[in-house]
Nucleic acid binder design. Structure first.
Ligand code: MN
Ligand code: MN
Ligand code: ZN
Ligand code: ZN
Lengths: 145, 145
DNA sequence: CGATAGTTTAGATTATATCTAATCTGACAA
DNA sequence: TTGTCAGATTAGATATAATCTAAACTATCG
C-alpha cells in the first residue's frame, strides 16, 4: 500500500498524519486478521517510533470516528479492529475464535416492513464453523482413536 | 415460560438445576434485549436468592458451554448474552448500540468452494442502522433547529 | 452418619480500556 | 526567525469487566 495514499486518506478525513497514527493505519491495512489494541501496540512498536498504549487507543478511537477503521462485531473481551477497505463479510472459527474476511457478495435484504420502523444502513454476514486450519486438524470422527 | 421446562432443559444438558442457575436461565429467556453479566447480576438479585458475581459468571460459562445460551457478537467491552431459543438475526443500532432480535429467515449461503476448506456450521445476519426509537428521534435534517 | 462431586462465595488478581495533566510538535502569523 | 496555539503524545492513575482462589456449602449415595 502506498504511503502517500495513507497520508491522503488521513488528511482527507481531517486527521493529521503523525508517525504514530500512520503506523496504526498502515499496520491495519496490511492485515487480514483482526488485531486487538494490544496486538497493534506490540506490532507497531517492533519498529520505531514508539507509541504509548494511550496513543494506540486514542488513534483507534479517532480512526473509527472518521470511518477509516471499524471495530469488528465478535465475541471475546478485547475489541478487534479492521481497516475499512473493500466491503466484506466475516467468518468466525468455533474452535480458535479467529475472525477471517470473506469476499463480499450482496445479501438479500428483507422486504420493507420486516424491520419495522428501523432505518437500515447495511447488512453483513457472520459465518461460523471451523477455519481451514482447525477443520484439517479435526479429521472425521472416530478416525484417530 | 414453564419452570418445569427450564428445569428439564438444564438437567437434560447435564447441569443441576440450582436456584442461582435457574435464575440466570429464566431471566435470559424472558429477555428480548441482550444483557451483560452485570445487568444479569443486578436483575436476578432484585429477587432472592442472592447470587454472587462469580456465580453469575460461572453459570453463564456453563450455560454457554452446553449450548443453552450464547454470547452475542457485538461491539463493546462487556459481553452480551442471549438464551438460544428460536433462531434469529440481530439488529445493532448505530446510535445507542442496542442489540435487537430480528425474525429468522434463511440466508442464501454461498456456493461450495466460496469458503475454501472451511467447514460451515451456520450463517447469521447483522443489520445495522437506527433502531425504532433512535430513528424517530433523528427526524429529517434541519427540521428541528 | 462419612465420603464425594458439584456449586457457591468473598475477595484477590488479571486484563482491557479510559482518563488526567503535563509535555511535545508542527503549522503559521507576526 | 520566532512566538503562539491547537492538536497529539505520554506515563501513570483510574475504571471496568472477567477470572481465579481457596474455603464453605449442598445434594446424593453408600
Ligand atoms: Mn475484516
Ligand atoms: Mn438475540
Ligand atoms: Zn480455527
Ligand atoms: Zn438506537
Amino acid at each position: 500500500m502506498d504511503a502517500e495514499a495513507i497520508k491522503r486518506s488521513l488528511e482527507g478525513s481531517g486527521l493529521r498524519c503523525t508517525p504514530q497514527r500512520y503506523a496504526v493505519m498502515a499496520f491495519l491495512m496490511g492485515q487480514t486478521k483482526h488485531p486487538t489494541a494490544g496486538e497493534i501496540f506490540e506490532a507497531v512498536n517492533r519498529v520505531d517510533p514508539r507509541s504509548s498504549r494511550a496513543t494506540i487507543y486514542n488513534n483507534l478511537r479517532d480512526l473509527v470516528q472518521v470511518g477509516l477503521v471499524r471495530e469488528v462485531a465478535a465475541e471475546g473481551r478485547a475489541a478487534r479492529f479492521d481497516a475499512k477497505g473493500m466491503r466484506h463479510h466475516h467468518f468466525i472459527c468455533d474452535r480458535c475464535g479467529k475472525v477471517e474476511d470473506v469476499d463480499w457478495y450482496d445479501v438479500s435484504t428483507p422486504e420493507s416492513g420486516y424491520l419495522g420502523t428501523r432505518t437500515l444502513r447495511e447488512c453483513e454476514l457472520i459465518f461460523r464453523g471451523l477455519c481451514a486450519k482447525c477443520a484439517s486438524r479435526r479429521v472425521s470422527p472416530r478416525s484417530s482413536s
